[in-house]
Write a protein that binds this DNA or RNA. Structure first.
Length: 458
RNA sequence: GUGGUUGUAGCUCAGCUGGUUAGAGCGCUGGUUUGUGGUACCAGAAGUCGCCGGUUCGAACCCGGUCUUCCACCCCA
């Protein structure tokens, strides 16, 4: 009985055409990473259980894929734990490894373990798959690639500026115009919470504020009330909902609002520096804007927060994000190491490029030349020509069997092969080969002695 | 994790209130065309109706479970 093949929920196969397009994005991103001075590292696909657990909050722990221990692990669990049926206490007894959930925590682990061999500031990039036991939706998978660039060991605000320039450079190379880079600062959020007297509810406060563009001002007020924030406090936020003008104007208004909060004002100063510096340097295709409601990934960010959204008109969540974390390596015992990083959502960028038809035409070609197979004698000559072309770096192939001409032509057509070479009995006698241009439809004859004449036209 | 949604030929989908042999378009194979693809015409192959169970004389259709898809929440790339 044949088994019906299937793949797990939230995972995908990639066809040759898809891999080619994904590689185009990977290569573009990698090139810019290296141009900006980042170095690649890789870490294992699974880590020790304790390395990952507790780093992403309760919600994150739930989404981590755990790997079962080997051997007869159940028999080693004591009866009390076993009969308690509590997943939390049972988990460490049956699992001691887990699949990588993101690239940031493994990177922190890497930095701490290799601190003696690293020259700081350390700029690294990493492009590897990560796994989350999430419920899949469009653009959300259980296995997907993350693509991170981080700098550790420098608290200079120039790094924030550099990372914004890096975003711009990558999206410019990908011909993706109109990307919006949104910028905020955790210190501003903390400052606002302080000023309105809800410092202890910072997370609830920011989570609610983050939803402004989704549920509107009324929705945010309602959610804040439900989370236990008083009406008077919420009332003080009113100017926040109506910030207008350019980034610098908004930051000036924020200064007034944050009077009395040292931390908040520091956050504003930081953003003013970043915005002004970017204005001096200029951006090619992306735009930068302050968004005080931005509050993603609050777990470890301490300074700047970035989020990148697709150009207007494309229904897609964020296609990148990042921020500064002053104490990421602290959890592994290495203090006072500031880091800042950004991430590209490759799978989503792929979907956006696809929707806007921005993949270059020429990456669709699998091979440049296909030789038609006319039989044993003819194909020997064809194979020799194919070898010569390959030595010149031309992607060339010979159809493996002398199938019907129609079938071979159709194969070439379906695979988008731009040139088909014909060497039949007649050509063999004349010592020539015919090249058919599949786009134009015309064909031309060349001498087998001088294939470089054909090479010139490629 | 909560609530909802989807699943019929390789692909996109039709199939009326349960009723005999389950349909279309595209694709595929062959032919018109034995040295020429994309167009046209002709013919053909291909489906355990996601899976398991139940109701019924009878289920693609109704009911339960399960897997999958997509959506909202949660969270996030």
């Amino acid at each position: 009985m044949a088994q019906k093949p299937s793949i797990p929920k939230g995972t995908r196969d990639f066809s040759p055409a898809e891999v080619t397009k994904r590689d185009y994005i990977f290569d573009t991103v990698k090139r810019q990473f290296e141009i900006f001075g980042f170095q690649p590292i890789e870490t294992p696909s699974f880590e020790n259980f304790e390395t990952l657990m507790g780093k992403y909050g309760d919600e994150g722990d739930r989404l981590i894929f755990k790997i079962l221990k080997s051997g007869d692990f159940i028999s080693k669990v004591d009866d009390v734990t076993y009969s308690s049926k509590k997943s939390n206490s049972l988990m460490p007894k049956i699992s001691d490894k887990a699949l990588r959930y993101d690239l940031t925590v493994p990177f922190a682990r890497y930095v701490v373990m290799h601190q003696n061999e690293i020259d700081f500031p350390f700029k690294r990039y990493q492009i590897q798959p990560v796994w989350r036991a999430d419920r899949p939706q469009k653009g959300r998978f259980r296995e997907f690639y993350q693509c991170d660039a981080d700098v550790v060991g420098s608290d200079s605000l120039l790094q924030e500026v550099e990372l914004i320039k890096l975003y711009d450079a990558v999206f410019t190379d990908l011909k993706l115009e109109g990307v919006k880079i949104k910028l905020n600062n955790r210190k501003i959020l903390a400052g606002i919470a302080e000023v309105i007297g809800v410092k202890h509810l910072l997370v609830d406060f920011t989570v609610a504020l983050d939803k402004l563009d989704k549920i509107g001002e009324e929705g945010v007020r309602k959610e804040m009330l439900e989370k236990g924030i008083s009406e008077q406090s919420i009332e003080k936020l009113t100017p926040l909902f109506h910030l207008t003008g350019g980034s610098l104007v908004q930051l000036e208004s924020l200064k007034l609002l944050l009077e009395g909060s040292e931390e908040g004002l520091k956050g504003v100063e930081e953003l003013i520096f970043v915005v002004q510096t970017i204005q001096k340097l200029g951006l090619k295709s992306a735009s930068l804007a302050i968004d005080v409601t931005l509050a993603r990934g609050l777990n470890y960010y301490t300074g700047a927060i970035f989020e990148v959204s697709a150009p207007e008109g494309v229904a897609m969540g964020s296609i990148g994000g990042g921020g500064r974390y002053d104490d990421l390596t602290g959890i592994f015992g290495m203090k006072n190491t500031s880091g800042v990083g950004i991430s590209f959502g490759l799978d989503r960028i792929y979907l956006v490029l696809e929707e806007l038809a921005l993949f270059p035409e020429d990456i669709k070609e699998s091979i440049q030349v296909l030789c038609v197979n006319f039989g044993d004698r003819e194909s020997m000559a064809a194979l020799q020509l194919v070898s010569q072309l390959r030595e010149k770096g031309v992607k060339a192939d010979l159809y493996p069997s002398s199938a019907k001409m129609q079938k071979q032509m159709k194969y070439a057509h379906n695979r988008n092969v731009p040139y088909v070479i014909l060497i039949g009995a007649q050509e063999l006698e004349e010592g020539s080969f015919v090249v058919k241009d599949m786009k134009q439809g015309n064909q031309k004859s060349y001498s087998l002695q001088a294939p470089e004449e054909f090479l010139k036209t490629l």
